[in-house]
Design a protein around this nucleic acid. Structure first.
Lengths: 154, 154
DNA sequence: TGTCATCAGTTTGAAAAAGGAACTGATGTG
DNA sequence: CACATCAGTTCCTTTTTCAAACTGATGACA
C-alpha cells in the first residue's frame, strides 16, 4: 500500500489517515483550533521547518481542510482558515487530547482544561452512540460490511 | 521539536501524537480493533514491510498499548493484544472513521456500518460534553491553562 | 537613499526514515 | 529430506525530513 493510494482505499480510516495521518499535520491542526492562522505563527510555535510547514499547508488546502485567504494585497499575504470540513476534525483532536490527558499525564496535572460555553462547566469529551446516547466501547460494537464494502474498523 | 521529545511536551495532543501520530501505527490499530493479533496477519492485510511492522509493534508494546503474549511455546510464537490503554484509543479511531465516512466517501456509500449491541441500532459516533451531554463544537469550547500549564488545543 | 525588519515562502545538501527483497531459525508435515 | 509456516532480522535503495541560508515584496527608520 503506497501513501498516494491511501485516500482511495475502501476504508474510511485509511482515507482519513491519508489526510491527517502524520505528526506535523496533527500539530498544525491543533494550532488551527487555537486560532493560529499565519505562516510565521505556525512556524514559531511549532518549530517545524519552513519547508515542511509549506508542504503541509498546501496539502491541507488541497484536501479542503484549510482555506488560503488573502489578508493583505501589498505585499500579498495569506492566512489559513479552517473550512467546515476542517472544523469537523474537532472530535479527532479532542479524542486525542483526552487520551493524552488520561494516559500520558504527569504529576503536574493536565496542561489544559476545557470549558463548555453552553453549560458553563469544565468537561471531558465523551464519545457516545448517536442512537441511544450511551458511552461507546469497542466491545459493544458490531461491524457490518456497508454498501462501499470490504474491511475497516470495528 | 524533535520526535523523541514529543511525549514530554506540555500538551496532551503532542503526547498522544508521539504514540499514534503516524500512518502505519493508526492502520495497525485499526487491525487490532478488528481482532487481528498476529504478525503475519498484520503484514498480509496491511502490506506493510516486515521491518516497519516489527518496529511499530515494539513501540506500541513499549508504550503499553499492546501486550505481547505467547500463544505457542515450541516454536516460541507471540500475538499482540490491546491493553486497556489501547482499548481507550477507540474514540480516536472511531472519530477518524466517522470523519472519513462524512468527508472522504465516494458514490458507493460507506465501507462499513456500525451496530451498537446495547441498543441494536446502526449508529454514528458522536462526541458530547461529559457534563451536559450536548454535541460538542469547537466554537463552544473555552480553553484554560490547567495545572500542567502552557499551550494545547481548544 | 540606504539599511534593517517582517512575512511568506523556496532552495540546497546532509541526515533519518521508509520501502523492498532476501535471509534466519525454530518447528511441523509429507 | 524437502518444503511450509511464523516471527522476525539484515541489507541496500529511495523517499522524507531537517537545518540553514536565500528570495522577493514591502514598510519603517534615519
Amino acid at each position: 500500500m503506497k501513501w498516494d493510494m491511501l485516500d482511495e482505499e475502501t476504508c474510511s480510516l485509511s482515507r482519513t489517515v491519508a489526510v491527517v495521518g502524520d505528526r506535523w499535520t496533527l500539530l498544525i491542526l491543533r494550532e488551527c483550533f487555537l486560532r493560529v492562522r499565519r505562516f510565521e505563527a505556525f512556524q514559531s510555535s511549532l518549530q517545524i521547518t519552513r519547508h515542511l510547514l509549506s508542504e503541509r499547508l498546501k496539502k491541507l488546502v488541497r484536501f479542503g481542510i484549510l482555506r488560503r485567504v488573502p489578508y493583505s494585497d501589498a505585499p500579498k499575504r495569506y492566512e489559513y482558515i479552517l473550512t467546515q470540513k476542517g472544523l469537523d476534525l474537532y472530535p479527532i483532536i479532542m479524542a486525542m487530547v483526552h487520551w493524552g490527558d488520561t494516559h500520558m499525564g504527569d504529576e503536574r496535572g493536565r496542561p489544559l482544561l476545557h470549558q463548555h460555553k453552553t453549560c458553563g462547566k469544565l468537561f471531558d469529551p465523551v464519545m457516545v452512540c448517536s442512537e441511544c446516547g450511551e458511552v461507546l466501547h469497542a466491545k459493544q460494537v458490531h461491524v457490518h460490511a456497508g454498501p462501499g464494502q470490504k474491511q475497516a474498523v470495528g
